[in-house]
Design a protein around this nucleic acid. Sequence first.
DNA 1: ATCCAGTATTGGATAAAGTCCAAGGTCATA
DNA 2: TATGACCTTGGACTTTATCCAATACTGGAT
Lengths: 124, 124
Amino acid sequence: MTAQRRVVAEVLDGEHVHLTADEVHSRAVAKLPEISRATVYNTLGELVSLGEVLEVATDKRAKRYDPNAHRPHHHLVCAQCGEIKDVHPGGNPLADLPDSERFGFKVSDVEVTYRGVCPNCAAA
Amino acid sequence: MTAQRRVVAEVLDGEHVHLTADEVHSRAVAKLPEISRATVYNTLGELVSLGEVLEVATDKRAKRYDPNAHRPHHHLVCAQCGEIKDVHPGGNPLADLPDSERFGFKVSDVEVTYRGVCPNCAAA
DNA sequence: ATCCAGTATTGGATAAAGTCCAAGGTCATA
DNA sequence: TATGACCTTGGACTTTATCCAATACTGGAT
């Protein structure tokens, strides 16, 4: 555990945190000015491999990193400003996919992304 | 309607078609050698605006374009090779998101992505 | 059939996001 | 202190996508 990794881990902490790699880097630089982009990417990649952090691809621009990897959840995204909330819907989408629709795949995971407009953007 | 647009529309036709912009361009070039990348991007953008084609962000690399926009469906993705199938699960995920989990958003849409391993990759 | 205004296309430049790599630094151990 | 393992750095490079000015094409009006 190096100073650089500690800083990345610190930046990625909290509820409803979904930063891009670049945002992580900016915030990390604020705490440790000499940290490089490459290290941020390396560390994020390791955290993802370790299962400590999730990659989220809600919009098609930069990947986002979600530290809330240990409680399963899905995402609610504002179509206008891009804000992302963690949500915990009921139901079991895995059970809703009949065998006839599995094409022989071994299905292991489901991701659900709700889209809408957040209160801020609705007001504007 | 120009030759270029016709070619792009032709390339994007069929079931379980989920090409990247680059793949669309390659195939379009095969039919119309002088078509430019910019035109492919423009045309894809227009088709998306018109609601004729969907953008899919299943992996975090290039966007993919799905011509099957008129029958609602979700996606099943192979985690190894990236193959994508259209699927039609039962259930109603929208109904599964309680008000208490909506954070005041006006929720209008849900995307469900199943992940697993396709028969090919499982055999290998 | 021709002309025109408007729209589409082109290719090259540019941007944004991410990856790769060689060189150098740090740390624990012996 | 010397050694080896692993991290970090910065810059070059790749991939994906967008922008722009110049040119070409389209369809309707004449």
